[in-house]
């Protein structure tokens, strides 16, 4: 892996790959995969599913390489959008629903173990609620609160403007709270006495 290639931008490496340079693909794989798989894992909550989405997203990148227009978008921006779309599709198709019974009876019932399980149940419940949101709301909320991107960047990723992003996030969060409010007891919020 040459030092010169390592210094190149994602778009330059993608152009090199389109020209047949395998080393460029190697650098892009190591540079982009951690971010891609992390985004997918945060949305899906499952490592194997996240890896499938990461592989699918990178495959799309390899295929689009010859037609890539560096002036139109950043590679990372494009990948955020592709991963978000793939994850929302996968969540909808799976029709996922958390199995709280599976985590309700821990073998070890010490407070810390119970707290961890409760945290996991809440995270899973949030992902399930996210999957039930309208697609654009789910994408805006996940990009803002799971990826911690700024609204202008989210607007670019979603090909819209900042005001629309703000609106999508606000409506999405209200909907999430409404969905999770019906499950306060099973998620243990009533026990959280400060």
């Amino acid at each position: 892996m040459s030092h010169a290639l390592n210094d190149q931008t994602d778009a330059e490496l993608l152009a090199a790959f389109a020209g047949g340079d395998r080393a460029a693909a190697m650098i892009l794989t190591h540079r982009l995969t951690p971010r891609v798989v992390a985004q997918a894992k945060r949305m899906l909550g499952n490592q194997a599913d996240a890896e499938d989405v990461a592989q699918d997203a990178m495959m799309r990148l390899w295929k689009i390489a010859p037609d890539w227009d560096a002036d139109r978008a950043k590679v990372t921006t494009w990948l955020y959008r592709v991963v978000a779309n793939l994850c929302t599709d996968r969540l909808r198709k799976s029709g996922r629903a958390i199995d709280l019974d599976a985590v309700a009876e821990p073998a070890d019932d010490t407070p810390s173990v119970q707290a961890n399980l409760q945290d996991a149940a809440r995270a899973d419940a949030l992902r399930t609620a996210l999957a039930d949101l309208p697609e654009r709301q789910a994408q805006a909320v996940s990009l803002r609160h799971l990826e911690e991107l700024g609204n202008p960047e989210i607007a670019t990723i979603m090909d819209t403007n900042v005001r629309t992003v703000e609106s999508l996030i606000a409506r999405g969060k209200r909907a999430l709270i409404a969905k999770l409010s019906g499950r306060k007891a099973e998620l243990g919020y009533e026990d959280d006495q400060d």
Partner: peptide, 19 residues
């Protein structure tokens, strides 16, 4: 049904846990 934290804070806690 009563939550001791605000809904928004509770939501942010779960996001932080996932992150």
């Amino acid at each position: 049904m009563k939550m001791t934290k605000t809904d928004e804070t509770a939501l942010e806690d779960v996001f932080a846990r996932i992150r």
